[in-house]
């Protein structure tokens, strides 16, 4: 994709994101979730697609963002927006700190051991939150009400989640254009070789996870306020939904590509919104089946499929 068309697509998406909820106020929440999904897929792909570290545990940073905002907004006695701002900041700081600590411990592990370790991390975090009374234990936490009018509330969260997704996209785009992006790919293609060529792989890997954690925590605090309630296992540390969707959307779009995760998130979210209501309680069964089908039959993703198709057409 040339630079020009890149900016065109970004502009069109931004315009859709800004004007969409104004024109179709009933769909404002769907737009908000779409941007959340885009952030999910993009942040997963930093490690999963670019660096070859398949993580099931990124949801932990989202959960930290949710809970940090909820606790600060509950305990600090600040007006709504001040509380939200402080909550988001605290969430980001805690999540990045967690990424540094967990990264130091876990990012030395490779391959499927890393995948299973991060899966354990995600479930353990949810279970700890579900047993910890200070954060409401199993009954979760309610967030303060948005002070403005009803429609205004939807717009505020839709646009702020759009802003997070856009920032995340632009930052990833910048990262992948630098030597840092090449270093991530080098670690993915041959970790030992990257070490033998003198790359500082450990700080590179930890920083990559910190970038994921930063944007996930930010979107977590906002999403918690938008939903208004956080359940430890079904919202904050929702490993079986959000946690797997991240992986699925990135693979569906094409992992390791710039636009793949965005595309995957859009396709997944729209499909989900259209078909989910017809499935009458079978949604999660269908999700399991969808994972199997995509992983087994379509692991190259839409971008990979497109590249293959173009290569075949050029060869013909």
């Amino acid at each position: 994709m040339s630079r020009l068309s890149d900016w065109h697509i970004m502009g069109a998406l931004a315009l859709t994101g800004i004007a969409g909820p104004l024109l179709f106020p009933a769909f404002a929440a769907q737009f908000a979730f779409l941007w959340l999904m885009v952030t999910f897929a993009l942040t997963w792909d930093i490690l999963g697609g670019r660096m070859g570290y398949n993580s099931f545990g990124n949801i932990v940073f989202f959960g930290i963002g949710c809970y940090a905002a909820a606790v600060i907004q509950r305990d600090m006695g600040l007006p709504y927006f001040e509380g939200l701002a402080l909550g988001l900041a605290a969430g980001v700081v805690l999540a990045v700190l967690a990424a540094v600590l967990l990264g130091s411990a876990l990012l030395g592990i490779r391959g499927h051991y890393f995948a299973i370790a991060t899966l354990g991390l995600a479930v353990a975090s949810g279970e700890i939150a579900a047993g910890w009374r200070y954060v409401g234990a199993g009954s979760g936490m309610a967030l303060p009400l948005y002070p403005g009018a009803l429609g205004e509330r939807e717009l505020f969260f839709t646009w702020s989640l759009l802003a997070v997704a856009a920032l995340c996209f632009l930052f990833c785009r910048f990262l992948y254009s630098t030597r840092f992006g090449l270093a991530l790919n080098a670690i993915r293609d041959d970790h030992d070789k990257a070490d033998a060529m003198g790359l500082r792989t450990t700080p590179i890997k930890i920083f990559a996870w910190c970038v994921s954690a930063f944007f996930l925590a930010l979107s977590g605090g906002l999403a918690a306020n938008m939903i208004g309630f956080i359940d430890p296992r079904d919202v904050a540390f929702a490993g079986a939904t959000f946690g797997v969707w991240m992986v699925l959307m990135a693979i569906l779009g094409g992992k390791g590509t710039l636009w793949g995760p965005v595309l995957g998130a859009i396709v997944f979210h729209i499909t989900q919104e259209i078909f989910w209501t017809y499935l009458l309680g079978w949604q999660r069964v269908a999700l399991g089946a969808l994972i199997v089908v995509i992983v087994v039959f379509f692991p190259q993703g839409i971008m990979g499929w497109w590249a293959e198709w173009r290569a075949r057409r050029e060869a013909a």
Partner: peptide, 23 residues
Amino acid sequence: RDIFISILATFGLSILIQQLANL
């Protein structure tokens, strides 16, 4: 295939069976 593919595929199966059992 790549071992992560099998992990993810069996993870999908686990969600599928778990939800079926729930229903």
